[in-house]
Nucleic acid binder design. Sequence first.
DNA 1: AAAAAAATTAAACACTTGTTTAAATTAAAC
DNA 2: GTTTAATTTAAACAAGTGTTTAATTTTTTT
Lengths: 225, 225
Amino acid sequence: MFKLNTCLVLFNKNSIPLKSNFNDKQILILEVAETLFAEKGFDGTSIRNIAKVAKINIAMVSYYFGSKERLLESLIVYRTSDLKNQLDNLLNEELEPIDKINKLIELYINRINSNRGIYRILHFEFTSKKREQNLQAFSELKKGNLKSLEAIIEEGQKKGIFRKDVIIPLITPTILGTFFHFHMNKPFFENLLNLKTEDLYNNYIKTNLTKHIQQTIKALLIYES
Amino acid sequence: MFKLNTCLVLFNKNSIPLKSNFNDKQILILEVAETLFAEKGFDGTSIRNIAKVAKINIAMVSYYFGSKERLLESLIVYRTSDLKNQLDNLLNEELEPIDKINKLIELYINRINSNRGIYRILHFEFTSKKREQNLQAFSELKKGNLKSLEAIIEEGQKKGIFRKDVIIPLITPTILGTFFHFHMNKPFFENLLNLKTEDLYNNYIKTNLTKHIQQTIKALLIYES
DNA sequence: AAAAAAATTAAACACTTGTTTAAATTAAAC
DNA sequence: GTTTAATTTAAACAAGTGTTTAATTTTTTT
């Protein structure tokens, strides 16, 4: 009567297989919801709206997710769950700490850039006071990410490469903040940097912007005043 | 039966008298709406919600503003109408172009910083596709602001102080974008820069951040590659 | 003080919202 | 093939939405 844990195997863009706890219909609903939430906001999107676009009955959202709020929570889980695994894999690679940091930044920017919908939702819904409760899943993810980052940096500090007076929790906001500012002003930078096509824009992010952020964090961690 | 143009005189923080087309009750409604829209978003705020906080009848919003959407438009007009006058006054001052630019930046940052509610609304509501139509009033304001900026810069270009290959429409986004990025990550910078009190935070914006933006724009306008 | 205009109110309007129900259909298990 | 479980459906639910109405109160004008 109420089946939630159908497991299937998905492939991300680097063809690393990963489990998902959502079935095909749930994923359809999640991806339609992602598009609409990103376009019109959570409050601006109705379940009937989602159902119409996804061509499903309006009761299916409650059937599969319980409620609209839980749909949002599931969406966050769906789009962020494998990030933890990717970070864990990175942690176990045999690399110098600074190379791990660089890879971590590349991974962050790549992920956000290819999942703009969910990060737009996170940016808009969770900077408003109304949705403060819903971010539990998101908050736990961030805690996990921070732990991974801490592990890398403490490794670098033990080796004497990184400064010891750096405030680790502030590094993630720096990485993400730089990207968001760039992307929130997309039309501006498209003109400024002559990024006429979507490809040119994406390429600029992948190369120049990522490089800039890497240099920034490297300077923060290594530079002695 | 329907009176909209009661004029009264208001005083802004620099005690420059300015006319307002809204009466006391309308202003009450506008300011309550501003708070709630900023807190919970336009869609997340109901007219009954506004009426309750403002302690007025729910019909008063329609009576004074026509509709909820027109209330939002009126709010934008209310909070941005005197900016044009301030810019015009600045234009007519006898100052060197670079000093006018510096004053313009100071004026922008000061205004946004002391009207965070409306700029939060503008940032959130008008970066979503849903509210694209409503920004006519806002769009006209920006066009007017751009004209003022163009006037100052062309004056500087004639005097041979400013470069001539600068893209003027991109300067405003640079000024505002720098501030917004700082402010959207307020908790981050409060920690990073040890701005424990609201006063310390505001003071940092007024001094260091403003100075930084002024230096940036100055470099953009004057620096020869 | 009387008349006209403006402001305010409670009630109702028609519509949308998220969610639930109970029946019907489809798929899976035996 | 029958039974059981999972899915899908249309309909209804109660609550909330923006807006309008028509009557009442308050204020202004004459």
